[in-house]
Nucleic acid binder design. Structure first.
Lengths: 149, 149
DNA sequence: TGAGGATTGTTGTCTAGGCTACATTAGCCC
DNA sequence: GGGCTAATGTAGCCTAGACAACAATCCTCA
């Protein structure tokens, strides 16, 4: 493998993720949510009342990054911060009615986007691809968790 | 497939790419280049004297994004802008001696990182994974090129 | 009970990328 | 030549994420 090889898996994976984000964001631009924000939405839809740290864990993202995401989404009326009785450090997060309504629309766009992206693959290949990617992901998670190097 | 499924391929792929970037950047932090900057380096190593637009095309990235990347790398002494004789709009890009030296080191770190990430897969599986990802990528490229939707 | 350590969220500073609008410069064609 | 169009790079404004440092709060244990 050489730096000259455009098919190097490392390149390809970053590209795939960037392209998915770009395509998805373009498709849903008129709704006013981005892909990353929609991920927040799916998480809070399932677990309303989660704290910011819990949300960050679910998204596997920095606490600070999650906090800023919530800032944006709160400003735009998608998410509400409510204080926790009993622990004044915690913000409990809830979706607004608008957000709950948008959830379904966004999900079907997301599904269609991924379906389109995977269209060239057969059902079997999709399955293989998904399973292989999941294994790579969990390997990376342990590498990232192990404090680098 | 439901929003509740953490193994949804759409989630997994973004996660894989983000984790690779994080792990790689952490490993090479002391060198002073990030993964994205190292990608620039590999491209200019192969094609010294490329214009900014050509570089943007090679990276499949916005012209503006590429321009800012070059700003940062020029400031840090990795890249040089030289004006073109004959077309005053164009900046021709060249690596500095430092950058050419760093190229090899970065490449082996990149290779090791990807190798580690793919470690759980057999040789055959790696191959499958790479080929499947490449097909998904080219599908996404045509989707992104086709002006969204 | 009170001191020290852990947790939670925020802020600052950085890279990275996208889109739009724009000035400059080339090229082409009348 | 002169005017239109295309290409090039830049700047402004936005999201997104990482890391570090910090204040407020909570918890544990001596």
């Amino acid at each position: 493998m050489s730096p000259d090889d455009d098919e190097y898996i490392g390149y390809v994976l970053s590209d795939v993720a960037r392209l998915i984000r770009t395509v998805f964001d373009r498709r849903v631009r008129d709704i006013g949510l981005t892909r990353a924000q929609w991920l927040v939405l799916t998480r809070l839809y399932r677990r309303p009342g989660a704290s910011q740290t819990e949300l960050a864990d679910m998204l596997e993202v920095d606490r600070a990054s999650a906090g800023r995401m919530i800032d944006r989404m709160e400003k735009n009326g998608w998410v509400e911060r409510r204080s926790d009785d009993g622990d004044r450090r915690i913000n409990r997060l809830y979706l607004t009615a608008d957000a709950r309504r948008a959830h379904k629309a966004m999900w079907s766009i997301a599904e269609a986007t991924v379906d389109d992206a995977l269209a060239p693959l057969s059902a079997t290949e999709r399955d293989q691809f998904t399973r292989l990617a999941a294994r790579v992901k969990s390997q990376l998670q342990s590498m990232a968790g192990a404090n680098g190097s």
